[in-house]
């Protein structure tokens, strides 16, 4: 166990280090930098002035030097400055992170709340009309583009309530915030709930075929007892994995949803920063996302071992 943990931890660091090199190089490969974009709108370009700004931002230095500068800063909790606002990147990102985190937690809550029970029902009622309906709904959850779903919700609310549930100013109290976030969270959580439902269903069906379930039935256990206390407990194992992975991957859906609902979170900010070639923001954000993903994977791995005593580490 101990050596396994150390090995896993080392691999996590290696992954993050690799990610930092890749993202850094990819950003520098982008056509045009912030200075080009600034001068694009000006029309006339004075090469001297351009070179001066590039120098000021440190873009004229060799790429390896820029890279080590960034990593050195990261090791000292210094994320650099945003090229666009010229504020420290940490100050730009700080207030936006909780917004995205809240949305992600609500979306995940929504998807577990709907995904797990509906998956169980679908499995227990296998091949009935209800099962088919639920399966079609879950499949459509994987098929609807989240931005379209979001646009439809906006259109519907304008048509019915004559009001748009988008972010205008920071909500004043918790209730307002919950109300405001519930619709985008549902729009982005629909996909995850569909995934969780499908996995719960197939995992449940897998377990229901096992011998010990037949034994339980033979002993006269009621249908409910078989389904919920014998089967569900074991069927839930693979579902924990997908919930963990979805938690980290929700950020993909949030990029779109935050854009449509005009929510000032980090996911939308990432797109803005990419379009403006705001390297310090993009590279730090990408590293943050990667850090979350590898950490969640690590935690899921450990939970899996704790929940299923058959799994041993390090062999």
């Amino acid at each position: 166990m101990g050596t396994y943990l150390i090995k896993r931890f080392f691999l996590m660091l290696l992954t993050l280090l690799g990610m930092s090199v890749i993202i850094f190089v990819m950003l520098r490969l982008m056509p045009g930098n912030i200075v080009d974009i600034m001068f694009d709108s000006a029309g006339f370009v004075d090469p001297l002035e351009k070179a001066e700004i590039e120098k000021e931002l440190g873009l004229d230095r060799p790429i390896p030097v820029q890279y080590f500068d960034w990593i050195w800063g990261l090791m000292h909790w210094d994320l650099g400055f945003s090229y666009v606002s010229e504020m420290p990147a940490a100050e730009e990102l700080g207030p936006r992170i909780p917004i995205t985190a809240k949305l992600a937690i609500m979306a995940l809550g929504f998807s577990v709340l709907f995904g797990v029970p509906l998956g169980v029902i679908s499995a227990v009622k296998q091949d009935t009309a209800l099962d088919y309906t639920l399966r079609v709904i879950s499949l459509s959850g994987l098929s609807l583009p989240s931005f379209w779903l979001a646009l439809l919700i906006l259109m519907f609310s304008v048509a019915v309530f004559n009001d748009i549930p988008i972010y205008m100013e920071p909500p004043e109290n918790l209730l307002d915030e919950l109300l405001l976030f519930s619709i985008p969270a549902a729009a982005v959580g629909f996909r995850s709930s569909a995934l969780i439902m499908r996995l719960t269903r197939s995992s449940m069906l897998e377990v229901l075929r096992q011998d010990y379930i037949r034994t339980a039935r033979a002993k006269g256990a009621s249908e409910n007892s078989v389904n919920y206390s014998h089967a569900l407990k074991n069927a839930f194992l693979p579902v924990t994995t997908i919930i963990g992975i979805e938690a980290a991957f929700l950020i993909g859906g949030l990029i779109i949803t935050e854009t449509v609902f005009n929510i000032p979170g980090v996911a939308h900010f990432l797109v803005e920063a990419i379009l403006m070639r705001d390297y310090p923001i993009v590279q730090n954000l990408v590293m943050l996302i990667a850090l979350i993903v590898v950490t969640v994977n690590f935690i899921v791995d450990l939970t899996y071992g704790a929940l299923d005593p058959r799994i041993k580490y390090g062999s």
Binding site: L11, L14, T15, L16, G18, M19, I22, I23, M26, L27, L29, M30, P31, A248, F249, I251, G252, G253, I255, I256, L270, V271, I274, L275, V282, V286, I289, A290, V293, V294
Partner: peptide, 24 residues
């Protein structure tokens, strides 16, 4: 395997987004 680990550390859309932006 390590390269694949790195690629899997970003959600599909985020990786595609950064790649699309850097390719033009």
């Amino acid at each position: 395997q390590r390269i694949i680990d790195i690629m899997q550390a970003l959600p599909l859309l985020v990786l595609a987004l950064v790649m699309a932006a850097s390719l033009g």
